[in-house]
Amino acid sequence: MSYTDLSRLLCTLATVKRRVTPVLRSLAFHMARQSDRLPPKQLSNVLYAMNSLSFPDPLLLEKIANDFVSQGNAIDKPTVVGGILTCMGQMRWRNTSMLEILSEWVENHVNICRTSDIAAMVLTLASVSYTPTNIDSLFKAIIPKLTSVTINRETAWLDVVWSLSVLGKATEEHIASVLNPSFVSKIPSAAQHQRTGIKLKLLNINAVARLSMPAYKGPFLDLSDFKDVIITQGRHELMLAKHVQTMLHNFLPPPKYIRENIQTNMGIFVDAELSVGKNGKPIPIEDFTTNFGEKESSKQLPEGAQKLAMFIWDYRDYTIGSQELTGINRLAMELVRKHDYKIVQIPYYEYNMKAKTIKNVQYLESKTKEAVSTS
């Protein structure tokens, strides 16, 4: 079968929602080996199929990227750009070469782009936490096109403002438009499965306004209305976090020396909180915690002591096939740092659940000391 025929078969499987893994692997293998190239429109269709089938085959993605980059000048339709950007964001695919070409194309053709295409640009850059080289000129061109009037669906506008907040490009007007009580009151009308995500984004934006925008004079959320928001973890994430926490208990007995599974009013989840004295030895966190800005600590932190926030990163916390964290996770660390915490990161690709206890305890101790000395 030709490259074109193989791609059409993949798209057909996506249309009929047939995720037959052996067939998909075979298709991806043969498509990745083709020497010819698909045009941008067909590449967009293939990417859409891979996204629909949750099948981000790394070799095929590399082939798509190579095909696309070599034809960057051949793009003539904003719908193709918008489609590719949307798939990249939803798949968490951080191909910097493609993002550079797409960013430049959107900037140069902003007047023929639909609002949805421009929004897809912002959402994808935030999702994969990427700053293109033309970020300043790009946003100067596209920000005027993105308003609550041009994007009249509340959830879509919230997504745009949240993405701008992640990228550090949100203005006071953007923030105020979604923290306004009249906007917040429309949340209950959203579909049930959307409500938690919407509330978490509002809490993220509220935290950005409080911690990163000292000149902000607009409204803030009434946090008492958000007490029911719970961030849940997947099975694999829970297994990893539980294993790490069990190892931590060998030198940080809870609850005196460590707090775990913390739901914050910033809409982010912290796996563990601890504190160390100036000599690097653990000290009781229960005396010094503010629960990340929710209350006053019962005691003043001793001179030279530091509070640490630990994030345990599962593979879903990264963009696919890379060691680059997604936008929400980078935002989480940024917000926690604003509360004077040092960050301890435990990535899944470093931590071995099958290793001996002594090895894992030594690794965690070294990561804690490293965070204190380098931050």
Rank of each mutant, 00 (worst) to 15 (best):
Asn265Pro: 05
Lys227Arg: 15
Met266Ala: 08
Val244Met: 02
Ile262Ser: 02
Ile231Gln: 10
Pro253Asp: 14
Met247Val: 05
Val244Glu: 06
Leu238Pro: 01
Leu238Ala: 13
Lys256Asp: 08
Thr264Gly: 07
Ala241Tyr: 01
Pro253Cys: 15
Ile230Trp: 12
His249Ala: 12
Arg235Pro: 08
His249Gln: 12
Leu240Gly: 01
Leu248Gly: 01
His249Glu: 11
Val229Lys: 05
Val229Tyr: 06
Met239Ser: 15
Met247Leu: 06
Arg235Leu: 13
Ile268Trp: 08
Thr264Ser: 12
Gln233Val: 05
His236Asn: 15
Met247Ile: 01
Ile258Tyr: 00
Lys256Leu: 08
Leu252Pro: 01
Phe251Ala: 08
Asn265Gln: 02
Met247Thr: 07
Lys256His: 02
Met266Ile: 10
Pro253Asn: 15
Tyr257Lys: 03
Thr264Phe: 10
Thr264Asp: 04
His236Glu: 15
Phe251Asp: 14
Gln245Asp: 02
Lys227Phe: 10
Gly267Gln: 00
Ile231Pro: 02
Met266Thr: 06
Ile258Val: 12
Pro255Thr: 13
Pro255Gln: 14
Val244Leu: 07
Gln245His: 08
Ile268Ala: 09
Met266Lys: 10
Gln263Gly: 13
Ile262Asn: 13
Arg259Leu: 15
Glu237Thr: 13
Pro253Arg: 13
Pro254Met: 12
His243Gln: 03
Ile231Asn: 06
Thr264Met: 04
Tyr257Gly: 02
Gln263Val: 07
Phe226Asp: 07
Asp228Ser: 15
Met266Glu: 05
Val244Lys: 06
Lys227Cys: 14
His236Ala: 14
Arg235Met: 11
Ile262Gly: 07
Leu252Glu: 06
Met239Pro: 03
Phe251Gly: 01
Thr264Pro: 09
Glu260Ile: 12
His236Trp: 14
Pro255Ser: 13
Pro255Glu: 12
Glu237Lys: 12
Val244Trp: 06
Gln245Ala: 01
Gly267Arg: 00
Gln263Ala: 10
His236Pro: 05
Thr232Gln: 06
Ile268Asn: 09
Met239Lys: 13
Leu238Glu: 11
Asn265Tyr: 00
Ile262Val: 14
His243Val: 01
Phe226Trp: 00
Asp225Met: 06
Pro255His: 12
Met266Trp: 10
His249Val: 03
Phe251Cys: 03
Pro254Ala: 13
Asp225His: 14
Glu260Val: 13
Ile258His: 03
Pro255Arg: 12
Pro255Ile: 09
Met266His: 09
Glu260Pro: 03
Gln245Leu: 10
Leu252Thr: 05
Lys242Gly: 08
His236Gln: 15
Val229Cys: 03
Leu248Arg: 07
Val244His: 07
Phe251Lys: 11
Asn261Leu: 01
Lys242Ala: 09
Phe251Trp: 15
Pro254Tyr: 08
Asn250Leu: 08
Ile230Thr: 13
Val229Ala: 04
Thr232Ile: 02
Leu238Tyr: 10
Thr264Val: 03
Gly234Cys: 06
Pro255Val: 10
Met266Phe: 11
Phe226Val: 07
Glu260Met: 11
Asn250Ser: 10
Tyr257Phe: 15
Gln233Ile: 06
Asp228Asn: 15
Met247Pro: 04
Gln233Trp: 03
Ile231Arg: 14
Ile268Met: 03
Leu238Arg: 15
Pro254Leu: 10
Pro253Ile: 14
